[in-house]
Amino acid sequence: MKKLVTVLYVVSALLGAVVSSPLVALYGSDVILSCTFPHKPDSGTRRVMVVWQRKDSSGSDQVVHSYYYQRDQLDQQGEAYRNRTQIFPEEFCKGNASLKLMRVRLEDEGRYTCYVGNEQDNVEHSVDLVVTAPYVEPSLNFDLSNQDDHILLVFTSSGGYPSATIQWLNEAGNDITENSTTTQLADETGRFQIRSEVVFPAVENLSYTFILENRALQQRITRPVSVTLETPATL
């Protein structure tokens, strides 16, 4: 196995490596990591060798999936990828050595490299995988206790990744985020739980806007807040 990978490294370096644009995948979903290579439709596929690798946190190459001798060779597969990968040998005749990664986790983020050797060429193709998760609909709470002539507004949300950008605007559209307090804590899955609060004077009418952005996913949640306070009638 090590000898095979070494040979592909050397030859592909001579041909030049291809790096695709980052691929964005949703947490918990399945994703296809593309890898193509020159292959004539009428040539055989018996000698096609495919090795998908990724560097781990220590910088060592970890086998994600490998295929040669006309079958999957998973003895050296990294434990984190057990029962979560698939390639499609029937697609080799089309020059397709793509990898299916199932049930994507946050720790799957990183650069994946595909090494392919066949009867004609040896190629190297890399793709950067970015994992994201959308934030759930924010919930709003009011707290009037222990606030002398002030109102505490609190927005909470969860389930998102990576950490979000939070913004508060006043009625005129001016940024007042510096007057707010926001905490973002990772849960056991690594996704974030958000709590953002701000204290406003208890005037008759309030009009503010809360904005949450997950820029990696291009998710933007905008929630206007309007509060009307009624003065109790005097007898």
Results as ranks from 00 to 15, higher is better:
E230A: 14
P134C: 00
I87A: 04
Y27N: 11
D42W: 03
T6F: 09
N146L: 07
P162N: 08
Q218G: 01
G160T: 07
Q77N: 03
W168H: 09
G160I: 03
P224E: 01
A133F: 10
I176G: 05
D75S: 06
G159I: 03
R84I: 08
A13D: 15
L14C: 13
D143L: 04
R46I: 03
N174V: 06
N96Y: 10
S145P: 06
A17R: 15
L169F: 10
I87R: 03
L74F: 06
T182Q: 05
N146T: 10
I211A: 00
V5H: 04
P162L: 07
T113S: 07
G16I: 11
L33P: 01
E79F: 07
Q120W: 01
C114H: 02
T177K: 15
R103G: 09
V136N: 09
V199W: 12
M1H: 01
N96E: 02
F92C: 06
E178K: 13
L169H: 13
T45I: 11
L185K: 15
D128T: 04
L212M: 13
S139W: 03
L4I: 11
T45N: 14
V31Q: 10
R47W: 01
V130A: 08
V136I: 08
T183N: 14
I176Q: 14
S21A: 06
G160A: 11
V18N: 11
D175L: 09
D42Y: 13
D108H: 04
C114P: 06
E230V: 14
V154H: 00
Y69R: 11
D175K: 12
A186T: 13
R47K: 04
S34Y: 02
V11Q: 05
T182F: 06
T6A: 05
S21P: 07
I221L: 12
K40F: 09
R84S: 00
I194Q: 04
D30G: 07
E204H: 05
P201N: 15
N179V: 10
V51A: 08
E119K: 00
V104K: 05
T183W: 11
E171P: 08
Y69G: 00
A216C: 10
T113A: 03
D56N: 11
V50L: 02
S21H: 11
A186D: 08
V31K: 03
R111V: 14
V227Q: 05
I32T: 02
G78Q: 07
Y69L: 08
Y69K: 06
E204L: 14
V131Q: 09
V225T: 11
Q219V: 02
T182G: 12
F192Y: 15
V10P: 00
V123W: 05
T181Q: 14
E197D: 00
T165F: 13
G95Y: 05
P201S: 15
V198L: 15
G28W: 07
A13G: 14
S157N: 03
V116R: 04
I87C: 03
G28C: 03
S145N: 06
I194V: 13
P134N: 01
I166F: 09
